[in-house]
Simulated scan of single mutants.
Amino acid sequence: MHNLGHFLSLVGLPYAIGFLALCFWRRWWLLVPAGLVAAVLAKIEYASVNASDGAGVAFGIILVVFAMIGAASGFVASGLVLIGRTTRLQALRAIYVLPAVFIVGFGVTSRSPCCGKALHNRGSMPTLDREIRLRLSVQRALLGAVSSALAAVTCGWNGNEIVLEFLVDSDFNDEDRERMEVVASEVVADFGDETIRTVFTSLPSDGPKAPVAKRWWAYKRFPPNAYVS
């Protein structure tokens, strides 16, 4: 629920901007050209965002899409108000139509399968973004927690499960292990619905053993040993 509220608060602003841009046109001969201009601008902006690269592209596309949907909702609201003026229907007065269309349009969009998939697959962000977030989180959590018995730390993902693997020396004790479990708790707290699994691999070893879809080094002790690739 917290993730849903955070997501909706982010996309609500572009939706509102798009809606306000087209909800106050009170003449057909103004509304139609405004709608066409908005559609062209939205297409250009969507193509620009989609053609760019970087970790925030997927999120940028979502914002643009919500702005486009907001504009479409505003266009519909203006059209209904114009119809109400023409037919003199009290139910289609602006004071009723604008908030109703705004709420219904945003509600339907936020509950759509594509929106739900985008929210559910937060973890399916671009690989670079996932790597940056996870490595920074692990490295921050390791500050002040690394003992001389810790040789290396790797991090990786299996779906929505974070895997932390600690390569340790023979003198790695229970107190060291407890500190690493605290590290894992701090890391998973930086994410949403993800779970975390810790693996402790004793040296000598050829390297990390835990199977992961993608692995990154978060810490390596100097000097490098045989396990460092």
Rank of each mutant, 00 (worst) to 15 (best):
M1E: 10
F7D: 02
V11Q: 10
G12F: 12
P14Q: 03
A16F: 09
F19L: 03
F19G: 00
L20A: 13
L20Y: 03
A21I: 00
C23Q: 09
W25Y: 10
R26M: 11
W28G: 08
W28V: 13
W28N: 07
W29I: 07
P33C: 07
P33T: 10
A34R: 02
G35I: 03
G35S: 09
A38E: 01
L41F: 11
A42F: 02
K43M: 12
E45F: 11
E45R: 12
V49F: 06
N50M: 12
N50P: 00
A51P: 06
D53T: 14
G54Y: 04
V57L: 09
V57Q: 11
I61M: 15
I62K: 13
L63G: 02
L63P: 07
L63H: 01
F66S: 03
A67V: 01
I69V: 15
A71D: 00
S78Y: 01
L82R: 00
R85I: 10
R85L: 14
R85D: 15
R88V: 13
L89H: 10
Q90R: 15
L92F: 12
A94E: 11
V97L: 00
V97C: 03
A100L: 05
V101S: 04
V101R: 09
V101I: 14
I103Q: 05
I103R: 03
T109C: 10
T109L: 12
R111H: 13
R111E: 08
S112C: 13
S112K: 10
C114P: 07
G116D: 02
K117E: 13
A118N: 11
L119D: 01
H120F: 14
P126C: 10
P126K: 09
L128Y: 06
E131P: 02
I132K: 08
R133V: 08
L134H: 05
R135K: 14
R135C: 12
Q139R: 09
Q139P: 03
R140Y: 13
A141E: 06
L142G: 00
A145E: 15
A145S: 13
A145T: 07
A145Y: 03
V146E: 06
S147T: 10
S148T: 10
S148Q: 09
A149E: 14
A152S: 01
A152I: 01
V153H: 03
V153A: 08
G159K: 08
N160S: 11
E161R: 11
V163E: 10
L164E: 01
E165F: 04
E165A: 05
F166P: 04
L167A: 01
V168G: 00
V168N: 00
V168Y: 00
V168M: 05
D169W: 05
D169V: 03
S170C: 04
S170T: 13
S170Y: 07
N173D: 15
N173Q: 06
D176H: 08
R177L: 12
E178F: 04
E178D: 14
R179H: 01
M180P: 02
M180I: 08
V182G: 15
V182S: 12
V183H: 08
A184P: 03
S185F: 03
V187F: 01
D193T: 13
T195V: 07
R197A: 07
R197E: 10
F200N: 08
T201L: 06
T201C: 08
S202H: 14
P204K: 04
P204H: 08
G207K: 06
A210H: 05
V212L: 07
A213T: 15
R215I: 05
W216R: 06
W217L: 06
R221D: 12
P223N: 04
N225R: 15
A226D: 12
V228Y: 03
